[in-house]
Design a protein around this nucleic acid. Sequence first.
DNA 1: TTGCGTGCAAAGGTTTTGCATGGCA
DNA 2: TGCCATGCAAAACCTTTGCACGCAA
Lengths: 140, 140
Amino acid sequence: MNSRSKYKTKQRDTLLGYLEKAPGHITANDVCKYLKAQGENIGQSTVYRQLENLVDEGIINKYVIDATSPACFEYMGKESHVKADVCFHCKCEKCGKLIHMQCDELEEIQGHLYEEHHFQLDPMRTVFYGLCEACAGAVQ
Amino acid sequence: MNSRSKYKTKQRDTLLGYLEKAPGHITANDVCKYLKAQGENIGQSTVYRQLENLVDEGIINKYVIDATSPACFEYMGKESHVKADVCFHCKCEKCGKLIHMQCDELEEIQGHLYEEHHFQLDPMRTVFYGLCEACAGAVQ
DNA sequence: TTGCGTGCAAAGGTTTTGCATGGCA
DNA sequence: TGCCATGCAAAACCTTTGCACGCAA
């Protein structure tokens, strides 16, 4: 679980450079394909291993939405993890779209659950299921 | 995605009968092994397909803990659906306990998500992950 | 020099799919 | 009778692992 990287390698820097400017949610496969397109040949095991390291270090986050779709990663920042913003995820049961949202009011859920129900919510892993705007409007 | 069962088959009944009295969370593999031990020979594809149906029907819930471990299922009950009351579920990531809660304030989440984010929450299927009181107190 | 990081290939395990057969309504 | 459900096997899929080599410190 705690396999923090001790060496600074070219591959790690390349990967980190991509993650920094990568948009929203990215899968390990996305990373591999991007790097390959760039001519950077980094083995997929290295990608997986470095992603795991970065998660351990808190530089990126990992989301597991469901069993069949691949895990998503997201850049959080190198600086200290002040956890200034808590993000939530909504997944559409119909089209499968993953919606990323950050909202103060939703943060209150966390406080409410803790104070009233003594439950310490982990927003990283919690996913709201339902219907997105498009799908809710499309059918019944 | 929406493959609700239309026929009532022996396999479905057998599976449902087991799920009703099955303890806590069960994997698809558990179900297969149990049925085989009972002399009930039900193909694994059938198990997976029926579990998917039952999730769609809201009779069982599906939990995904992480990418590599198999998904867990849990019996929720045949009734409800009347949604006279909206119930929420919290699952402890540590001890696995499933907490059932009904709370007016949490119902507001639904309204909020719909009005502000145009997302139609499905409380039946949404599970809040985190730490229960006991586990949160135990360690850090 | 030491031992971690890398890369390739192959394994691992869960879940899905194709297709012919059997069963419910 | 018309579909749907089933079962088997094989595929698909993501992720991890083994092992030899290269590279950082």
